[in-house]
Amino acid sequence: MIMTCIVIDDEPHAVDELSNLIAQVPTLNLLSTFSDARHAIAYLQETGHVDIIFSDISMAVLNGIEAADILNKYCHFLVYVTAYREYALEAFGAKADGYLLKPVTYISFTQKVEDLNNKFQDIIKLQRDENQFLFIKGGQKSSYIKIKYSNIVFIEAMLNYTTINTTTGHEITYIGLKAMGNKLQLMDEFFRINKSIIISLNYLDRVDGNIARMADGMSHQIGEKYKSVFLEFLRKHTLKP
């Protein structure tokens, strides 16, 4: 199970060391790194949820403990990476899911990731068991429309509404694409490929350069902002000779 993550640390060498460790773990996908918690928060507010945030504690302007309330809203697991043991109690109070001491060893890092991965799989299983479908409000008062996740081909943000395109037609909701993405983010088959489109990989036929071609004949542009993560996902799932 692949978990997305970001790194926050104001020391470049610490970012490099942690990035190298992440690169050695197949279950992790590093989306971005930040030298300032404020920039990381701005990124999360724009792009949405990630699975793990690895954050330093002692940073200028806004430290990791002070940022915890906001960071926890955008991740499943908040893991502090620090050189100071004395922060352990504060980290516990900030509802951290891990506490790694610098310099971080490969063994301690992989053990923590394995522990989080087990918890992550439990979260996904629970969500899948409980959420095989969603309801959106219909056009009439007190009317609701049931949509199975397995029938969704792609979701498209329009001017002030979102269209959910399914195998049987399409439905309109006024839920924003970001909120929809947060709802779907634990389900492996859904992938946001540009600022307006979330596709279901179940109905992805092929990818030609920057174009995702769907089984229903529709084609969608892969945005530059989302391209690297999407292509990395495809590479990891491509058979190699």
Rank of each mutant, 00 (worst) to 15 (best):
V207Q: 13
V81D: 09
S19Y: 03
S58K: 14
K102P: 04
V229A: 07
L101W: 00
H170W: 15
V229Q: 05
A88K: 06
E11Y: 09
L100G: 05
I52V: 15
Y226L: 02
S55A: 06
V7E: 04
D216C: 13
M59S: 09
G176N: 15
P241K: 03
I155P: 05
T168N: 15
L30V: 02
E232Y: 02
D9G: 02
E46P: 05
K137E: 14
I172K: 15
D51N: 15
I147C: 03
N131W: 01
Q121D: 11
E86A: 02
K240R: 03
K119V: 09
Y174T: 13
G169N: 07
G217C: 05
K125Y: 09
L100P: 02
L116I: 08
V50C: 01
Y144W: 14
E189K: 10
I211A: 11
Y74V: 03
G93L: 03
L126S: 14
Y161L: 11
F191K: 09
A60C: 13
T167A: 11
L204K: 10
G181T: 10
V79G: 10
L101D: 07
E90V: 03
I164N: 11
F191T: 07
I41K: 04
I199P: 00
Q111E: 04
Y226H: 01
I193S: 06
Y203A: 07
K236S: 02
E66S: 15
